[in-house]
Amino acid sequence: MDSSGQFHFPRWSNLLLPAIGVLAVTAPIYLITLVGYGASPATINVGYRPEQPVEFSHAIHVGELGMDCRYCHTTVEQAAFAAIPPTATCMSCHTNIHPKSIKLLKVRESYQTGQPIEWVKVHDLPDYAYFDHAAHVNKGVSCLECHGRIDRMEVVHQAEELSMGWCLDCHRDPTPSIRPRGQVTNMEWDPAMATDEEQAEIERIHKSLKSTRQLTDCSTCHR
């Protein structure tokens, strides 16, 4: 307000000009970072680690004891769902091993009452995305690709973002994610160590795959 009672920009407001310039440049960068990173599935989903009713450790069972994934998740090679093992599977060992462990109380209870243990779903795709375990596992896509180093997880968490863009990364270039079918559940397998035979199988699978045009068709995942 100047002496005439009118509003005029005061002299110091000129100093704001460079500030406005800086803001004009940084604000979009900030916003893009905020939305692009802060709200991305990579930030929101990865690391989701719900508490489970039973303290089951994949690190012990897979990592230390070296059990194969398919021992428990039996349907993974035949069906869309890699079924959660029934309580009976747990009890086939735990009738003898740690039969009285406090941690296994709920398992024994479930076995006796027939009431299932309610696990919390960790890897939860939207219902309009139809993922098929069998289709992937049989084409040499390792468990590792989506679930991460399960053999090192005390409590399972989501290791990958499982977003559409993330799925497409692989569907647009599947080769690096393919390994011999025999090594699908091997967490330690290293492509650099592949034998000639294994290399040949990888190539065979690669050839049997559809073009990336088809792998990225909407109908591949959405019904």
Binding site: P50, A83, I84, P85, P86, T87, A88, S110, Y111, G114, Q115, P116, I117, E118, W119, V120, K121, D124, P126
Partner: peptide, 12 residues
Amino acid sequence: WPRRKLAPYTAR
């Protein structure tokens, strides 16, 4: 989105 549960068989 909701937290979902998985209730497996006790003996499939």
